[in-house]
Design a protein around this nucleic acid. Structure first.
Lengths: 149, 149
DNA sequence: AATATTTCCGACTAAAATACTTGGAATTCA
DNA sequence: TGAATTCCAAGTATTTTAGTCGGAAATATT
């Protein structure tokens, strides 16, 4: 029940781009270095994010990546799902079409998985990169406060 | 972000035992057959559940397994965690001790993982096998109703 | 006492997923 | 032209998953 590095690194990278939003293209090298991720591996992840239209790229020297929408308009759910696929504790609730389970309707276990999925989706779909930037602010303020007392 | 078959089969098996609670030992063979799980594999899972004191066993002919507590006192969280280990989207919130991440305190991404974890825990720790039995009742009633109209 | 049934135990394994690495082509700025 | 960068396609080592296999130990029934 963990996300893979795809989702975890992906969110870190996207948050990095959110922090630097509006400052022109940011190189993969810088993101990878700041977030302590293998550059080549991150390249694969950001390619996925680009295909999902969550980031845009500028090629060549002085190129790099930037968010394709303002931080308010990108949710954690957008990021996670583009990298990890559908989110949920079991196939029967993640992709009901491709579910082999015969008794979809009358399965009690499925109800439990559905509740878990719903609660996870609720969190990731209501948290935007802008919310995370606000969290960052709060943490910084608290830190400064702690420093001065 | 899926549970493995350990957690998924484990919950099905435990629900099966809940349905048959109070009727003496239930054989692994029957559970495995009803829930369509490999008998030998389920054996491993139920051994874990036994070590976690969630089920008790009776050896020998006419033996089998039964819940070690009434269904009201066993939560989905008990079952999942005994089979899957700590639940959560990333190590830093699942096992803060063994976390290699340096900035545990000031990591915004971690806050997101923490919220996801909290919401999942809330669901699995407030759902008991007895709740699932009630769900089953509701489904059956609905089915009967559908049949007679 | 013998037999059938059942749990218990430990080792083994094939397949899939994960988390990368490698090497190079294409593009753009200076 | 050359340096910096994104883009792309394969390859790979490690780990995890989802089991299998074989047999020992315990118990009820006959």
């Amino acid at each position: 029940m963990k996300f893979s590095t795809k989702g975890r690194y992906g969110l870190k990278a996207m948050f990095d781009l959110a922090v630097n939003y509006g400052e022109g293209p940011i190189t993969l090298k810088n993101i990878a270095h700041r977030q302590d991720i293998s550059e080549h591996y991150l390249e694969q992840l950001i390619a996925t994010l680009r295909r999902a239209k969550l980031v845009k790229s500028v090629r060549g020297a002085q190129g790099g990546y930037m968010l394709n929408h303002p931080p308010e308009e990108i949710t954690v759910g957008d990021i996670i799902r583009s990298l990890e696929g559908p989110v949920g504790p079991a196939d029967c609730v993640m992709d009901p079409e491709a579910d082999e389970c015969s008794n979809q309707e009358s399965c009690v276990t499925r109800l439990v998985w559905a509740r878990i999925q719903e609660s996870v989706n609720d969190v990731i779909d209501t948290t935007t990169l802008a919310d995370m930037l606000e969290d960052q602010e709060r943490i910084n303020n608290k830190k400064n406060y702690m420093f001065y007392i």
